[in-house]
Design a protein around this nucleic acid. Structure first.
Length: 257
DNA sequence: GAACGGATTTTCT
DNA sequence: GAAAATCCGTTCC
């Protein structure tokens, strides 16, 4: 084995190797179930965090109404049109990042959205990123998880990367990782093969979460019974803002709000 | 335990 | 100008 491979080896992955680019050079619906059990690693100056993938979703390109590529190429989705085995990171809902892995060949804008995983390395660092410093919830005054009630605000390790935006926060994935090649050992962000492949019989399928279009296709995949899988939420239209702000403050001198 | 509303900004119509 | 591949705390069964 090359020396560099041992130097970059992940503690929890003694015998596994990086996924080759050919792995991703297939339709996303084929790649998505095969990614379950594989390990996403992000190495930063702070340290290394690794998650074993437990849930993902396939997005086809121009033919999929739920895909970001459905309406053609834009500055945001450009990476999806590039070569397979690269990360497509996008920002959504004004505050969250989500990470995809690009599939097929160049020009086919398909990808797999990574939805959930179990942290198997760097849990302390992941927890610090999600909940603040290791002192516990609220220790640094951050709003993430507060002790507002006596129960149910205790962070759980199972929740560290359970959900697409949570996983990005645990792994410190943001715009800087958009376009990263996950198939080379020199990349801080990379994906390793599963130590023990997940049998097809252990993979469940269902509709994708939160999408309004093409809600009938079962392109969400997860490891059956795994606790580190996000809760399914059907698409729900967001209601209009309660305060239209059509007028300014009261005329008579009452204090706003 | 389900349902709801707020936060917040990029992206495209 | 509205919707969006979300998360979190609160409220109401």
């Amino acid at each position: 084995m090359p020396l560099i491979a041992s130097l970059l080896r992940v503690p929890s992955l003694p015998e596994t190797e990086l996924l080759p680019r050919e792995f991703f050079a297939r339709p996303a619906v084929e790649v998505a179930p095969d990614l379950l059990g594989c390990v996403l690693v992000h190495q930063t100056a702070e340290g290394l965090v690794a998650v074993r993938l437990t849930e993902d979703e396939a997005y086809a390109g121009a033919s999929d109404p739920a895909s970001h590529a459905f309406r053609g190429r834009t500055a945001r989705n450009a990476v999806m049109y590039g070569p397979p085995g690269h990360a497509y990171v996008y920002f959504t809902y004004g505050m969250h990042f989500c990470v995809n892995l690009v599939c097929q060949g160049e020009g086919d804008a398909s990808a797999v959205l990574l939805r959930s995983g179990l942290v198997i390395d760097g849990a302390a660092l992941a927890s610090a990123r999600r909940y603040g410093t290791a002192g516990g919830p609220g220790a640094d005054g951050r709003a993430g998880v507060r002790r507002s009630t006596a129960r149910s605000t205790v962070p759980r390790e199972i929740d560290l990367a359970r959900g697409p935006a949570r996983m990005c926060e645990a792994l410190a994935i943001d715009r800087a990782q958009n376009g990263s090649d996950v198939c080379v050992a020199a990349s801080p962000l990379r994906v390793y093969a599963a130590q023990k492949p997940v049998p097809g019989a252990d993979v469940s399928t269902g509709p994708r979460v939160g999408v309004s279009r093409a809600a009938d296709v079962a392109w969400r995949f997860w490891i059956t019974g795994d606790p580190a899988v996000s809760v399914y939420r059907a698409y729900a239209p967001r209601r209009a803002r309660a305060k239209p702000v059509t007028t300014r403050g009261p005329e008579g001198g009452t204090i706003p709000q």
